[in-house]
Write a protein that binds this DNA or RNA. Sequence first.
RNA 1: GGUGAGGUGGCUGAGUGGUUUAAAGCACCGGUCUUGAAAACCGGCGUACGUUAAUAGCGUACCCAGGGUUCAAAUCCCUGCCUCACCGCCA
Length: 432
Amino acid sequence: MLDPKYLRNELEATAEKLKKRGFSLDTQTVAQLEEKRKALQVKTEQLQNERNARSKSIGKAKAQGQDIEPLLAEVSELGGALDSAKAELAEVMNQWDSLVLGIPNLPDESVPVGENEDDNVEIRKWGEIPQFDFAVKDHVDVAEALHRGLDFESGVKLSGARFVVMRGKIARMHRALAQFMLDLHTEQHGYQEAYVPYLVNAASLYGTGQLPKFGEDLFHTQPLTADGQGMSLIPTAEVPLTNLARDEIFDEELLPVKLTAHTPCFRSEAGSSGRDTRGLIRQHQFDKVELVQLVKPEDSMQALEELTAHAETVLQKLALPYRVMSLCTGDMGFGAAKTYDLEVWLPAQNCYREISSCSNMQDFQARRMQARLRRKGVKKPELLHTLNGSGLAVGRTLVAILENYQQADGSVAIPTVLQPYMGGETHISLAD
RNA sequence: GGUGAGGUGGCUGAGUGGUUUAAAGCACCGGUCUUGAAAACCGGCGUACGUUAAUAGCGUACCCAGGGUUCAAAUCCCUGCCUCACCGCCA
């Protein structure tokens, strides 16, 4: 959520910035709504004030044994006016809330302006693209040959399209990857490991911005009711991890808070039917190791660089070639002020594919969540900044290894750093 | 799932319809005193929103949440959530 004060006072400037990301703000509606809001709120609070004062005087009069009948009638009338003013105000506030909650974050100055993913800017590249002297297979075929390590048919049987069953060494490598990532981030990057719920309430989803706009991307356990009783499967651990800060005030010396968690993620993939139907790239359920940071506002841009580097380290240790893209204004997610995507090289697709997305949300989520910090000697708490990134998507990392580490004989080499997690073995071979 | 007891400020805890602002204590901050500290004493001490140049004043709201009754609700009524204890079931 944007700062309502900033929105009001800098309406045109806000609209200009939002235009960069392809969002057109109806400034006239905003201005009109705001004018109504102001008049109604002032009026309502005045009436309230008057009623409180008079009710109090009734109490006094009664205590002194005076006749209160005429006073009662007067205040009763006032109550009617107050009720209707309240109702009007509530209506306007509802409109305002649904408008403001639907406005995306403002892009940072450093974000390249563009319309879609074609306008994203490559920041750097790492690693050598492997050359193969045999016909490369994609990860589906590689795993199929290895004792049906990826069993999509069973996934369909058990659940439906976009579900998979992993078996044997492939399943173990999937597990090993998550362990490796968690160990790296906790032991070397200073993150605290967390185990979190996979089902969250509506308030959490509002906090990180999935609601009210993107409910259809989620799996819900029951219809979401207005009072927020229904629970939903998390689309990313960003939701539970970041919401740990909801309604909290952190002393400044406690920041930054750095959290990581390995969780499954559930996405309905509404609107992406037909895309990436083959293989592990786009599943309804996938595992991810998530990185979240809560930082002081002045530190968040530097923190984004660091968090991105933490995710990159995973790829580097696995020796997987990748590039870092700065997402353009038109391609960024709803709450992000700036986003770097990491894209890993997939030989079979002969291109780079997203494997991590690292974003600085600035105070966008913090404002929705009332996640704040208190500085030494300053009375008023201020909103902190939140960041999150994948470190990394486990399924897609598995894809990258199967494809980049495939051998002519059909086996797959195990990256050195993963070998301790796989009983010291060096290959997954056909003989296994 | 059953029965019972509860949810009040950072913490403890009083408060069953009005009588100045939710009593009091602890913690915390500032001051007096002191060589310094402690103690004692004095004062301060929530959050959000609005108004505003203002993190100054003033106003409104908030005693788990949402409704209701009333001129007036922490207090009465309804619904939900959560916590604790015991019982049942269970990985």
